[in-house]
């Protein structure tokens, strides 16, 4: 396990390093000037001379890259070209907001997704299976942006059950600290705590549930396939041969092994989830990374694009490495043939 751990961490570090090369390169490849692209300071600014000095603007590529890394690690990620806000501080806030919806949506997808998938596999080719498959196929085929807008139109506008967009009603004066609204409310401890939480949750219902739909449908299908595969295995037969009850065989042999297969495939789901989070954030004006990045791409806000790209890529990377490590730690038999595969 230790060897595997080091391998995976090594893989992570190398990939992250390549990522910094890419973002550094972007500063050069974007139209315009390197110093402006990476720091957000225009040449007519009085600070410009100092910035060129600090970022080694006149030196060779290597010392420039080293200066870039130094800035990266000290949290000086430049300022936005648009509003002069420091990118790193903004990122921290928005990262929290994104993580909040993404995590909640993921949980919401897992909790009904796995039992439904198991159920479908147990009733293979019976009406229950067909119903679950039909629902999951249709859920999977509906585009998120369309679904979100219809949901806003019907549930928020027409029925008025939940707010249309945003994170919380601005009347609740919650100072942003982590970006995650629930955490912020708990940290602020206002006198109207319950009311604020209620309002924040109402705002969250639509984006989170819409975001959960597609991963849930995928999880249903993945779980079903994994279960069908596991139920064919010899050790299931052996369980029956021992005289165990069907429920016991499924609970202690089939489901754990199916979960192992599912876990392996969850990594691929993360990037889908993050992409969808971006779309949903834009539609619901959720102050997260996604909406910010999309805006920065429209406005050619290069420092923001660089920072956001780095964070999202690193996030997906780290999550998949953690999944890999967890997989190897929990399921010892895969360790021996896992060496070297990413």
């Amino acid at each position: 396990m230790t060897r595997y751990l080091f391998r995976q961490i090594g893989l992570l570090l190398v990939t992250l390093w390549l990522l910094t090369l890419l973002t550094y390169g972007l500063g050069h490849w974007f139209p315009g000037e390197f110093i402006t692209n990476s720091s957000g300071i225009f040449p007519d600014d009085i600070r410009y001379e100092d910035i060129v000095e600090q970022r080694a603007g006149d030196a060779g590529i290597l010392s420039q890259y080293i200066a870039y890394l130094q800035h990266l690690f000290s949290g000086q990620w430049g300022v936005s070209l648009l509003d002069g806000e420091p990118v790193f501080e903004q990122l921290q806030l928005r990262f929290g907001a994104t993580l909040e919806v993404a995590l909640l949506a993921f949980l919401l997808a897992l909790i009904p997704g796995i039992p439904l998938g198991v159920l479908a596999a147990l009733y293979f080719r019976k009406p229950v299976d067909h119903t679950i498959l039909t629902i999951s196929l249709s859920g999977y085929s509906i585009p998120v942006f369309w679904f979100a807008q219809i949901a806003i139109l019907v549930i928020a506008v027409h029925w008025g059950m939940v707010p249309i967009s945003g994170q919380i009603n601005p009347l609740y004066d919650i100072p942003p600290r982590t970006g995650s609204i629930l955490l912020d409310i708990m940290l602020a401890q206002p006198s109207y705590l319950a009311a604020a939480l209620h309002n924040a949750l109402l705002h969250m219902v639509l984006p989170v549930s819409i975001l959960a739909v597609m991963p849930m449908m995928l999880i249903i299908r993945l779980t079903r396939n994994a279960m069908l595969d596991v139920l064919q295995q010899n050790y299931i037969t052996a369980g029956y041969a021992k005289g165990l009850s069907t429920a016991r065989v499924i609970w202690s042999h089939a489901i754990p092994n199916a979960m192992q297969q599912l876990l392996r495939q969850l990594g691929a789901l993360i990037s889908l989830l993050i992409t969808n989070t971006m779309i949903v954030e834009v539609i619901f004006s959720w102050p997260g990374l996604g909406s910010w990045l999309v805006r920065s791409i429209y406005e050619r806000d290069y420092p923001v694009i660089q920072g956001g790209l780095l964070v999202i890529a690193a996030l997906i990377l780290i999550v998949s490495i953690i999944l890999n490590l967890f997989h190897a730690w929990r399921y010892p038999q895969v360790r021996k043939d896992l060496y070297g595969t990413p």
Binding site: Y235, A238, A241, G243, L244, S252, P256, N257, Y331
Partner: peptide, 19 residues
């Protein structure tokens, strides 16, 4: 479960890999 037991060829695959 009580009166008949069975063992198989390729015994390894009849053991649950995760237990």
């Amino acid at each position: 479960g009580v009166d008949i037991a069975m063992i198989f060829q390729d015994a390894k695959s009849y053991l649950d890999p995760n237990l």
